[in-house]
Amino acid sequence: MELLLPLLAALLVGAGVFMVLSRALIRVILGLSLISYGINIAILLAGAGTGLAAPPLLDVEGPYVDPLPQALILTAIVIGFGTTALLLVLSLRAYQATGTDHVQEMTEKPDPVEVLGSYADPERPSISPEFGPEEKLSDTKEPS
């Protein structure tokens, strides 16, 4: 156990870094998740490396394990959950707007707002009738 968990943490972070370096959005997100798992294990080890102490419960005899690293990990997990959800939605939006999930191709594409005056997002909700996408289209095309 002493050696196994650090190796596991290193493996997870290494695999995560490898995936973050790839050019597909979804791999980057998965890589980030792997990194955060590896890091959670590392924090767990920093707080309770021996793995022998009892859980800090009232009806269990000590010596107790230090519960604080676990609280830290819990916070990190919650934050990681939120940001991963955000990243997934973001990559989906980017995919819908550009038709690719490859970072390089995305950069080469010109910005439709600057070129056409239309929206990046094909599913942009029209929130008020006078500002709907239809009105915008008639702006760019000359009425004949």
């Binding site: 973050v20 980030l32 955060s36 830290l72 940001t83 955000l86 990243l87 973001l90 950069t107």
Partner: peptide, 24 residues
Amino acid sequence: NELPQLREGFKYVVVNLIASAIFV
């Protein structure tokens, strides 16, 4: 939700997530 925002926003989020991971 403009295209440059989506593109640059993704990089911004990823860089900051990695920095946060090192911080934690």
